[in-house]
Design a protein around this nucleic acid. Structure first.
Lengths: 124, 124
DNA sequence: CGGGATCCCAATGGATACTG
DNA sequence: CAGTATCCATTGGGATCCCG
């Protein structure tokens, strides 16, 4: 199970990278509230650059988590939404962020203590 | 909630980065089976370099997820173990990897279809 | 045994400009 | 509006050598 060459482990690893990348989770949770157009997502996630939003959406689409519907009008219209697969990921993601929210104080205190006990050079 | 400047979001983001980095989850799940010494971990996770294992353990220790116990003998002995906080993370992590395992086939098929529909240049 | 220090390459990601 | 293309800075991470 821990052999990094096994397909299962590589897929999990890929998924974790996707979860860990800077914007995927934010996009998935936003789309979890309902379909969005490209610039709607940009507005709801102000810090994302248009380049990274595009890349993130492409990756999520490739993994089958997000659907992309193009309406070839002038101006063009593209709607993004979670697929059923993407919907099913919301639950484990929520579990993770719930954990994070529940333990943010403890983590911060651990970091503070760690930084204090070692040299206080790396005071993030 | 989506303001990236908010402390909560920054902490979640940090946690997700930790989850998403290449080795943290593997280390946490391995330590979930019981305490391990440094080189035991290296043996159980063959692909990790000693540098990255050190860094990963330091980060996890700083976040309060892993404890580090030094026995100053010759040769030195260092035991790593999950803290209660680290233990509590095993559940959401398991939820995530269960999801990944359950959906690996569907994800692969989505990727295959995506790569096929677009140019087959990026055949990962 | 359990690291730290250094070097170096590859990937991530931001800013900006251009396009259909 | 919804991207694509290019350039560039930062970071991640492997290899190697050294040390207590």
């Amino acid at each position: 199970m821990k052999d990094p060459a096994s397909p299962v482990c590589r897929t999990i690893s890929t998924l974790l990278s996707r979860i860990g990348d800077k914007w995927s989770v934010l996009v998935v949770t936003t789309l979890g509230e309902g379909p969005r157009r490209f610039n709607e997502l940009r507005r709801e996630i102000p810090a994302v650059s248009q380049r990274m939003l595009t890349l993130t959406l492409r990756n999520l689409e490739r993994d089958g988590l997000v659907s992309r519907a193009v309406t070839p009008s002038i101006p063009p219209r593209v709607d993004y939404a979670l697929t059923p697969l993407g919907e099913s990921l919301r639950c484990p993601i929520a579990a993770l962020s719930d954990w994070a929210i529940a333990n943010v104080a403890e983590i911060h205190e651990a970091q503070r203590r760690f930084d204090h006990e070692h040299d206080q050079a790396a005071a993030a």
